[in-house]
Design a protein around this nucleic acid. Structure first.
Lengths: 247, 247
DNA sequence: CCTACTTTGTGCGTACGTTCACAAAAGCCT
DNA sequence: AGGCTTTTGTGAACGTACGCACAAAGTAGG
């Protein structure tokens, strides 16, 4: 069924798999690099290599967007950059507010990668009067009291939480109340938000722990023992360790 | 689990699914909070709620570690904290080196969450002589030249890359050459490393793009059109059209 | 026009991950 | 002790994701 175009038989209209969505930014980055080098077209094989994925996966991912390649040739770089950008919503402006101007918030405010793709740091907020008023990255830090007003007036659509963990939930609540439906959370807490609000989490500690797990597998052999708390000692019960491989 | 003979699906000695490993730190954090509040035991239902996951998933995850619960009661908090910590390898010390002391590296060096779970910032490194020598978080920034020596002498096992993207691959190569097999990469680049080396990536820009995608779905209706590059018509025919993306 | 070659787009088998639902185990109460 | 309640641990159904392999669709050349 080689339709000229029209109806995407893909997923009902626009059902792009989550896993695919998560990879699109990766492809986009690789394509942007090619674009800057003036490369006109790229094959799925080449692009996949640049993005560090399997070429079949890449082709399938792109097929969800539409049929934008040319058999025997590959993909037109500029055209694909545009299509992916559009699908991700990067052809529009996304004002971002950063809440919590500590070390991390400070770093993010200065982070160039933010502005690079349609994201614009519209506001910096903090609860500490010792911080508000300071200028960071050419922008004045406002007080939390102004949150609702800023969100409304600047049409902020994405909130980035870089507060200490204890404050994160309250900040999230206020963001949601102010109408924000997308949150990027750097605080090490599970945020609970109403249906319809998207939360993504970035957690350094978790990433390190996952690395440690694999590192332990590789270098060390067995989990190292330490002070072992007793089993919820039932009458006469012995705490047994999990069946660990016999070394 | 009456049959103690069944060939574990998670056989392979210790075949804990990746998805489970990624959640263990989450459970650990929730358990630590309970522990601090002096809660002695917790049910899968409660713990799952605290960690923001489904309770069946939680039970299955924990079952990979062993049978540490008590039917009708729940899990002993302290005991479970220990078992998860041990499985993740957090009962041992993991010296970490941060390479690239810009805004982000600086923030990470001061980030308390690092030290909270067996991770110890053992060294800060930078290629810029204007930065080396500075003291950050009570630690002198060393020069990249000393990387190999530091890794060796301090038994650094995990490298955190917070350099600009162009430098990341070279830093990774040197880390690998120095013997490091776990890397946490904050630079927006795909690192290529030999088999056996673990790389995890944290990418702000990608997280924001994923949020933007969903935000577009929710608020906006369809992807917004912009300057549309022409379809590729002929092979040689360059269609260098409007730059869609800013650099 | 016809043949040879390249590369996309996708059907299909497999593996992995999630969730339900329930038997088995443990505590508690009478 | 026996029955009732609670909660774990897991079998099984379901759904998503991955990657091979190949037909279809395009280019290139004679």
């Amino acid at each position: 069924m080689a339709t000229g175009r029209t109806e995407r038989p893909a997923q009902r209209g626009r059902g792009i798999p989550e896993a695919t969505v998560a990879r699109l930014p990766l492809y986009l980055r690789a394509l942007s690099a090619l674009s800057e080098r003036g490369v006109p077209t790229v094959s799925s094989e080449e692009l996949a290599a640049a993005a560090g994925v399997n070429s079949a996966k890449l082709r399938k991912d792109l097929s969800y967007l539409g049929s934008y390649g040319t058999r025997g040739v590959g993909y037109d770089v500029e055209y694909l950059v545009y299509q992916i950008s559009r699908e991700l919503g990067l052809t529009q402006d996304w004002p971002v507010a950063i809440i919590g101007i500590g070390n991390l918030g400070h770093a993010l405010a200065n982070y160039g990668g933010f502005a690079s793709r349609g994201f614009r740091v519209a506001a910096l907020l903090d609860a500490d009067r010792a911080v508000t008023g300071q200028r960071i990255a050419g922008m004045a830090v406002r007080h939390m009291d102004d949150l609702e007003q800023i969100v409304r007036e600047d049409h902020v659509s994405i909130g980035v939480i870089t507060t200490p963990a204890p404050a994160a939930q309250e900040v999230a609540d206020r963001l949601v109340a102010a109408g924000i439906t997308s949150i990027l959370n750097f605080a090490p807490t599970v945020l609970s938000v109403p249906e319809g609000v998207d939360v993504r989490k970035v957690d350094l500690s978790i990433e390190l722990q996952i690395l440690a797990f694999h590192e332990q597998r590789k270098s060390g052999l067995d989990p190292v023992a330490g002070p072992v708390p007793a089993r919820p000692s039932k009458p006469g019960e012995r705490g047994d360790l999990p069946e660990v491989m016999p070394a």
